[in-house]
């Protein structure tokens, strides 16, 4: 019996190389029979280092947190929970540095980015504010706060004060 290389290890190495290639490609683009789509990479907030839960949990469970929270807020007045939609929009504020308003129908919106990719249709933002308040709104009303984003609560107090003038 000749001492030729057994084909199985070679096949396994080839498979591993092929797999690693496809995985690294999937980081950027998801392919299907209908073409390829860029995988969303929603921008991280610049004013917080971590979310209220680990990213893996938030990806799968954020809708459950929000659904529970909406009833607790409307029926029982619980507004200081870490799972508030307002809290989401305060951190993941889609207002851009150039003052441009990014509303939910815009694919650059933090929520819209993934929802478009996953073909999810929500109607949260037909009623709810789809962003913390934009830089342009802030700079119009409160010039001294133009340098950074503020939470909606802070903004609101500023808005009240500016209205009194």
């Amino acid at each position: 019996m000749s001492k030729s290389l057994h084909p199985l290890p070679i096949l396994m190495i080839a498979l591993l190389v092929w797999l690693s290639c496809t995985v690294s490609a999937a980081d950027e683009v998801a392919s299907s029979g209908f073409g390829s789509v860029a995988i969303p990479r929603p921008a991280k907030p610049d004013n917080a280092s971590e979310c209220v839960e680990p990213v893996e949990v938030m990806r799968r469970e954020h809708m459950k947190f929000l659904l529970h929270q909406r009833d607790a807020t409307v029926l029982e007045g619980e507004r200081d929970s870490k799972y508030s939609l307002t809290g989401c929009m305060d951190c993941h504020n889609p207002a851009r540095n150039d003052g441009q308003v990014v509303r939910y129908p815009d694919p650059r919106h933090f929520c819209a980015d993934c929802h478009r990719y996953a073909s999810v249709k929500i109607d949260c933002f037909e009623c709810h504010a789809d962003r913390g308040l934009s830089r342009s709104q802030q700079s119009r009303l409160i010039p001294e706060l133009n340098t950074g984003l503020v939470s909606s609560q802070t903004f609101h107090r500023q808005l009240e004060r500016s209205g009194e003038d």
Partner: peptide, 27 residues
């Protein structure tokens, strides 16, 4: 249809609304 609602007062087409006694301040 509305847009640019304020964070403390969600409001949208097809629903009824009224004074909330400023419930967000009370909470």
């Amino acid at each position: 249809p509305l847009q640019d609602q304020l964070p403390v007062a969600p409001r949208g087409k097809g629903t009824v609304e009224s004074c909330t006694l400023c419930v967000h301040r009370i909470d």
